Amino acid sequence: MAGRLLQLLALWTIVVGVVQCCPELCSCQDKFAHQFADCAYKDLLVVPLGLPSNVTTVSLSANKIKILKSKSFINITQVTSLWLAHNEIVTIETDTLAALVQLRNLDISYNKIVNFPWQDLLNLTALQLLKMNNNEMLNLPKDAFSTLKDLRSLRINNNKFTTIVQGTFNALTSMSHLQIFNNPFTCSCSLEWLRDWILTTKISVPEPNVVSCEAPEHLKGTMVTLIPKLDCKAPTVKISYEPNMENTELYEGSMVILNCEALGSPTPQVSWEVTAGNQNNLFPLPSSGEANDVPINDKTTNNRFLIFRNGSLIIPRMSKKEDGNYSCSAVNDLGKAESGVKLAMTGTPKSAAIQRWTRSVHL
């Protein structure tokens, strides 16, 4: 019996030791009824192993960590506060943060993060404070914060965001503080909404004088709230063709000319896409330079069709090889428009049939 009690006591000692273990360079203690692990200012290169499984606050600030692996925090899912500021983090692997469903405070500021695993945030529905400022992030998805209804303070200032999509902050019904200053915003039609939103929202948006435009050049340094009203029009596309194939029989060997007229403000990026002869080719038209008589497509395709800067596409000799879809698209900040024709050689004598289609998507 005594031996059995000794075994149980030894087992209990091991269990308690596992729960209360602490990485060598860290300090672990109970603080205000929370389990606190202080690993800051230790010159750590990685997240240390052996953090207590019941820890609720982890400070890893001011170290030299460069990467957060997907399993870095897999054994400390009770964490409510995670401090990672002032490291050298470049990469955060997908699923690194997704398991921390009780997280309320996350600080990854003052790092070198370019690509953040935004999908991880979808799980962190308890977040109240999110500090991502002073990184090098480029892209902010529209749905990045779509599940963070309890978020009160968001700091994404001092990154490299050039735009913020309308609707990005719609789900943040508890937010009272938003920092977006010192980002190199492109003040085009897609950012007009932000001007109006800042002027009308009840959320605090500090330092509005440096919530400013980096581009275009004539607006550089202008506060976003002072962007003048812009002439913004979604793109439209219209294809005309010669000869008028709806009224004319087109024989094999005939020349076909398709003209793409694209309108919009700002000036849309126009492209021809050709799917013919078991090949698919995309030809973006140069956005600058004078229109000229030199086709933009190279010798691999220009013996079959010619594409010019002005939007014209010429098929010098219509044949079965040129059967296919010819579509012209135009894209700007407000959306995308696309129009196309389908050409097919049919019947005897050989003639061409044409079908037309159009579609538009507004952002």
Score class of each variant (00 low, 15 high):
residue 217 E to S: 08
residue 158 N to L: 13
residue 196 D to T: 13
residue 210 V to P: 00
residue 224 V to I: 15
residue 158 N to Q: 13
residue 152 R to Y: 08
residue 190 S to M: 04
residue 159 N to F: 02
residue 261 E to A: 14
residue 179 Q to E: 13
residue 215 A to M: 10
residue 174 S to Q: 14
residue 268 P to V: 01
residue 197 W to T: 04
residue 232 C to P: 04
residue 267 T to I: 14
residue 187 C to I: 06
residue 260 C to Y: 01
residue 148 L to Q: 14
residue 263 L to N: 11
residue 257 I to V: 15
residue 149 K to D: 04
residue 171 A to F: 04
residue 165 V to T: 15
residue 210 V to Y: 06
residue 178 L to Y: 03
residue 268 P to F: 01
residue 208 P to M: 09
residue 257 I to K: 14
residue 255 M to C: 06
residue 169 F to C: 03
residue 203 I to Q: 01
residue 211 V to T: 08
residue 247 N to H: 12
residue 259 N to I: 08
residue 258 L to F: 15
residue 225 T to E: 10
residue 148 L to V: 05
residue 248 T to S: 11
residue 272 W to E: 03
residue 204 S to C: 09
residue 169 F to S: 01
residue 185 F to K: 00
residue 169 F to Q: 02
residue 253 G to W: 04
residue 221 G to D: 05
residue 150 D to F: 12
residue 178 L to T: 04
residue 164 I to H: 00
residue 246 E to I: 07
residue 192 E to R: 10
residue 240 S to L: 10
residue 175 M to F: 05
residue 231 D to H: 08
residue 212 S to V: 08
residue 201 T to N: 03
residue 193 W to M: 01
residue 257 I to A: 11
residue 157 N to H: 14
residue 255 M to P: 05
residue 211 V to K: 00
residue 155 R to W: 11
residue 172 L to F: 09
residue 161 F to G: 06
residue 154 L to N: 01
residue 250 L to S: 08
residue 186 T to K: 08
residue 157 N to Q: 15
residue 218 H to E: 12
residue 166 Q to E: 14
residue 161 F to R: 06
residue 217 E to P: 00
residue 258 L to S: 02
residue 267 T to E: 13
residue 204 S to W: 07
residue 153 S to L: 10
residue 165 V to S: 11
residue 182 N to V: 07
residue 224 V to D: 01
residue 222 T to M: 12
residue 179 Q to C: 09
residue 166 Q to A: 12
residue 171 A to G: 03
residue 163 T to G: 14
residue 161 F to L: 14
residue 203 I to L: 04
residue 263 L to D: 13
residue 238 K to G: 01
residue 195 R to I: 04
residue 149 K to W: 05
residue 206 P to R: 01
residue 197 W to N: 07
residue 263 L to E: 11
residue 245 M to D: 08
residue 226 L to Q: 15
residue 216 P to F: 05
residue 165 V to L: 13
residue 188 S to R: 06
residue 152 R to P: 02
residue 252 E to L: 05
